[in-house]
């Protein structure tokens, strides 16, 4: 036993569904008070990881500890709360009744009114839980997650159904939550959301951690740009000689180069190809960035 157990400690975690390896050997330690984004494209294993941390599914191999306990113990003790993507609302019940239900089953709950207030939905207490917009439903899930007054919140794509204003309000509520030194682990596929709120970003791809660090570090890894140009005066061999083979495709006169250093690529290109035209530099999506990372690690 250590004096202060990790908020979350995952070791050698694996989980497969059929032949799909959703989580493929993840080791991760989250200290109390950290705000960690699990960043990855769809299918990277973020939701599976969230399920495993909450004890909603059992790992094929490896261990999960939440504040040094099993996930089930942590949930029962009210240490961990969560907002899931697909946690449905109960028909024919009001938001207030749902919160009261969660308060009734937890040992040391927040008062219902306070949980609703902290989630910014005090005005929705008397509304039917199934008559809400997507963004409102997300905030009801947030309120339910707050009822046990947890030390760790696990959020799976929390702002996915929210508009810009609701999103801003949600993250403001989350800042108030973490101000008291609590831990947040949230899954997202949006780099700017991870960048804006987390103090640590864990990049997931194909069920593995491919990068782990500050948002600035991870951004430098995933900030891939694509340089496209029509290059009539260089053949494929010459292009590959200049820019290598990774992320470089040549199709006739068309050249496409993925790079984290677009400036240097452009300078080199213009120096060696005076007739290069139709030059275009675009920021790549996260998906493309991941492709370049994993292609890089595979070689």
């Amino acid at each position: 036993m250590t004096d202060t157990p990790h908020a979350v400690r995952l070791a050698g975690l694996r989980k497969s569904y059929g032949s799909t390896r959703a989580v493929d050997g993840v080791d991760l330690e989250v200290a109390p008070g950290e705000i960690v984004a699990l960043l990855g494209p769809n299918g990277a294993g973020k939701s599976t990881l969230a399920d495993l941390i909450l004890g909603l599914s059992r790992p094929d191999a490896g261990t999960v500890a939440v504040f040094g306990r099993t996930p089930r113990e942590a949930v029962d003790a009210g240490l961990a709360g969560a907002m899931l993507q697909d946690g449905a609302m109960l028909a024919d019940a009001t938001v207030g009744e749902l919160a009261a239900l969660f308060a009734a089953v937890h040992r040391h709950p927040l008062p219902v009114a306070e949980a609703l207030d902290r989630a910014g939905i005090a005005d929705l207490a008397r509304r039917r839980a199934t008559d809400l917009s997507g963004g409102q439903t997300q905030r009801v899930r947030f309120a339910l997650a707050l009822v046990p007054d947890p030390d760790l919140l696990v959020l799976d794509e929390p702002t996915v159904a929210m508009d810009v204003a609701a999103r801003r309000e949600f993250w403001a509520a989350m800042r108030r939550f973490v101000a008291a030194g609590r831990t947040v682990l949230f899954a997202t596929h949006q780099l700017d959301e991870a960048d804006g709120f987390a103090d640590r970003v864990v990049l997931l791809h194909d069920g593995r951690v491919v990068a782990d660090g500050t948002p600035r570090h991870v951004k430098s890894v995933v900030a891939v740009r694509t340089v496209r140009a029509t290059v009539p005066d260089l053949d494929a061999a010459a292009v590959h000689a200049l820019f290598g083979a990774d992320g470089v495709t040549v199709d006739g006169e068309g050249v496409r180069i993925s790079t984290t250093d677009a400036d240097t690529v452009l300078r080199t290109l213009l120096e060696h190809s005076p007739r290069a035209r139709d030059i275009e530099v675009t920021g790549a999506g996260l998906e493309e960035a991941f492709l370049s990372i994993t292609e890089g690690t595979a070689r």
């Binding site: 909603l56 949930v75 009210g78 899931l84 946690g87 449905a88 089953v105």
Partner: peptide, 16 residues
């Protein structure tokens, strides 16, 4: 219905 809509999953996040 409650099992497939995800309500029982939501309940699993409580000590119930």
């Amino acid at each position: 219905l409650e099992r497939h809509s995800g309500w029982t999953r939501q309940l699993r996040l409580s000590p119930l």
